[in-house]
Computed example of a mutant assay.
Amino acid sequence: MPDLHLTPLNALHLELGARMVPFAGYSMPVQYPAGLMAEHHHTRNAAGLFDVSHMGQLRLVGPDAAAAFETLVPVDVIDLAVGKQRYGLLLNEDGGIIDDLMFFKREADIFVIVNGACKVEDIAHIQAKIGQRCEVIPMPEMALLALQGPQAVDALSRLAPGVEKLVFMTGGSFDVAGIPCFLTRSGYTGEDGFEISVHAEQAEALARALLAQPEVKPIGLGARNSLRLEAGLCLYGNDLDPTTTPIEAGLNWAIQKVRRSGGAREGGFPGASKILAQLADTTGAITRKRVGLVALERIPVREHTALQDAAGNPIGEVTSGLLGPTVDKPIAMAYVAPAFAAIGSQINAVVRGKIVPMEVVTMPFTPNRYFRG
């Protein structure tokens, strides 16, 4: 794979016997010798270490940074307290999602993490839109690791005393095994855990220190995908894209009251008129909705599978799907016509010409276990 970028942990992945695959322009570990199922269950029960250094990291610097960034996303940036993190959505002029991201308010800047496959375009977009109001500083010199699972805090607090005091969506600067890091108590698995930004030159030393803890094993992209789907979390490019609005995606919760109709800073973001109309649920404003599905037969239903009503009429498409290792049943996310989005609705998937009955269910498929204090 000569044209792919390598993360700072590439040599370690090969040493650990990882099977490498192309992902977001990088050579990434999809699984290690234990296999996807074992890695998934280990993360649910102990602690898994993920290399997510393909993600984009950047800083927004300047007194106007929060107000400027708020013109690009439908969330409350200005009032976010220092020391706290928030989920955000970068939108186009039609209200479609360019990318989803995480941002953290620090004393000196706003720290932003964007998806790896979108990072070049995201940074260029942010620079073009608000680069005259604040400094947009990419951080290609930084790696990113995620330590996830119910025992992640036990492992990390041995190396960085004090991290156990953090709660979900907070963070700070810590020395981890003597290595300077910036970390947040957050992640992409539905479990308690941490995401750790570290200089690329020290990433391998950090990873080895974490893997030396008895609770921790390396986890690949395969289990990362099954964990996030069970947690009901969207994957950009599958469940979110530039044609999908936050309301269609069921991400209403990510739009704080201050940015909604009647809020003090209502609108003022790309696609605001369309999104606010969808929030009001005016007739015909929403033509599709993201739903969770469970197959009523033990047949996995993958992305791009067509969905039909009982009469065989097309009503939507699966965007993510697999056999959930924890729930032990086929699960999926899909977009369907609003008439079929109610919990308990029965619809059919067409898998290689076979009709597979499915039921709309609440998400997440397995309870989230974030540490909120």
Rank of each mutant, 00 (worst) to 15 (best):
K354G: 01
N115A: 09
F174V: 10
A209W: 08
H54M: 05
E215L: 07
G56R: 01
A310F: 06
E204S: 07
I347C: 00
C118D: 11
L276T: 04
L322Y: 01
A38E: 04
H304K: 15
Y335W: 00
V52W: 00
A254S: 05
A349W: 02
T319E: 10
I347A: 03
V21G: 00
V327R: 10
E266N: 05
G321N: 06
D328A: 11
D122P: 11
G232M: 15
E204D: 08
K105W: 02
I130N: 07
L279M: 10
P325E: 00
V301F: 09
R86M: 10
F104C: 11
E266V: 09
K274R: 14
G96A: 06
F371E: 08
E121M: 14
K217N: 06
R259C: 06
T245G: 04
T243L: 15
I343M: 15
L229D: 05
L9N: 10
E70K: 03
N238C: 06
P325W: 00
D79A: 09
A81W: 08
I255H: 02
L14G: 05
A143H: 05
T184S: 13
P300W: 00
L206G: 09
A177N: 11
G237M: 10
V336S: 02
L210M: 06
A209E: 07
H41G: 04
I343V: 15
T244V: 15
F23V: 03
F69R: 05
L12Q: 08
I347E: 05
V327G: 09
G263L: 14
K105L: 04
H54K: 05
Q256F: 10
G353N: 01
D241C: 11
M363S: 04
L279K: 12
G237K: 09
E93P: 12
Q127E: 09
T7P: 09
P300S: 11
D3R: 13
T282P: 11
A66H: 04
